[in-house]
Amino acid sequence: MDTTTVLFVGAPLAGIAIALADVPDPVFAQAMVGPGAAVDPERGPLTVVSPIAGTLVKLKPHAFVVAGTDGRGVLVHLGIDTVNLDGAGFDLLAAEGARLSAGTPVVRWNPAEIEARGLSPVCPVIALDATAVAVCSVAAGAIEPGRTLFQWVARA
């Protein structure tokens, strides 16, 4: 029997929810990494939290992946081309392999500093291995951390 399960993917930080298509990076904007949404963050020191409950399967300073118990993984990418910063400006608050609740702090950073270095601080939030139609009810406008950024529908 098919049951459809919805994963509520929360905003990982405060800012303005924008469409993935408006992310200033063609790979994310064209959903090559996967479908999802993005947050244009507030400028100032911000704590980034886990968008879902699960395991922190990958933690880089500028990006992390949380996989839920059903195996669905969500990528949070902090800014565009921020890999080139080699971790400068990112304080890690969790350890790879940790079990997280939705809303558990993972990284602290300051998007204003990223912007001052000439990089976009926009944060894509990606449903990994999802089809485009699996992502729906995408938020728009001002959003607080933990509020639903989009819903991820999957057949389980």
């Binding site: 990494v33 996967g34 399967v57 990958k58 992946v65 195996g71 993984g73 990994l128 291995d129």
Partner: peptide, 10 residues
């Protein structure tokens, strides 16, 4: 074929 799996390889 899995972006999750490939990212996980690091």
């Amino acid at each position: 074929r899995s972006i999750l799996a490939v990212l996980g390889l690091d």
